[in-house]
Design a protein around this nucleic acid. Structure first.
Lengths: 161, 161
DNA sequence: TATTGTTATACTCTATAACTATA
DNA sequence: TATAGTTATAGAGTATAACAATA
């Protein structure tokens, strides 16, 4: 439980922060994975894929899924195949481009996802229940800066390349 | 890059926070993994194991490593084996218990780790450079509450079981 | 030629459980 | 009996690269 020993001896604040961020994420993520497995016999990437689809009735193309899930295309194919086999998502032709299609939740997939999402939400709420609403907001905002900074740095990297 | 779409339609604040936390961690972690691979031909768990050893001259027992790295024993054996093969760590007998031993960095391992840690620190500092010292401190403190809460919840779970 | 998606492959990381040796 | 560590195994998760079909 002492991942935070990972830091170098000088322990600048940024490093301490990173190690704690990593620890927190791992603690919550490990719990979510375990419960998804135990209660729904599924995995985080599968849940993630369905979550990406949940908000779009028309579905998403493979490359959109790949980008949003931050994994390469081949993996999305594999996860999609599994979910298609189980009747939870389906591939739908895109008119105007016969190479592509959209993946979308089936009614059954949507129903199951709603149930999973309700549970998932409860786990997450419990994980952060120690924080006041103001603290939650503050944390969210600070992490937003970090995310935004990272995104911008990568855009610059692409432009320079 | 839009992992944050994973949330359920109601989007309570805790869920938004979790998704953002996960996104930030993944962004930084992915970059660290890539650079460890490219610059040092190593992986995050290997770096992590060496980092755990860095601060203890006498080394750590396998079960201590396992607990700190939050993974089960068999995996620590595997990673340790690799590092032993490369001459970066060594197994040392513990006097008084012939079942156990300590794993510790070799001089060569320590030298290499120092170099890696210096680079690693620079990557992390850059990832959070957008935050002021006060913001870093604030984030660290808020995450400390989350970590502490999780730890306590788990202790209660064990007592109840 | 470039893009969409698939296939094949290989590797790292992980948990579980059975095992050996020692306490 | 309990503990320290290993071995064996299976599966998740990932990236890479070669490939087919279409643009």
């Amino acid at each position: 439980m002492d991942l935070e020993a990972r830091g170098h001896s000088e322990h600048p604040e940024a490093l301490r922060l990173w190690l704690r961020l990593l620890t927190c994420t791992q603690l919550v993520e490990k719990q979510v994975r375990t419960q998804l497995r135990e209660q729904f016999d599924t995995t985080l990437p599968r849940f993630d894929l369905m979550a990406q689809l949940e908000r779009s009735v028309e579905g998403l193309k493979m490359n959109e899924l790949s980008r949003r899930m931050m994994v390469t295309g081949g993996n999305v194919t594999g996860i999609t195949d599994q979910l298609v086999t189980e009747g939870l998502v389906e591939r739908v032709d895109v008119e105007g481009d016969r190479r592509a299609y959209r993946v979308r939740l089936t009614p059954r997939g949507r129903k199951l996802f709603d149930e999973m999402a309700r549970q998932h939400e409860a786990w997450i709420v419990a994980a952060f229940e120690t924080l006041s609403p103001r603290e939650v907001e503050s944390l969210h905002k600070l992490l937003g800066k970090v995310k935004h900074h990272h995104t911008q740095r990568n855009e610059n990297k692409l432009e320079t390349a």
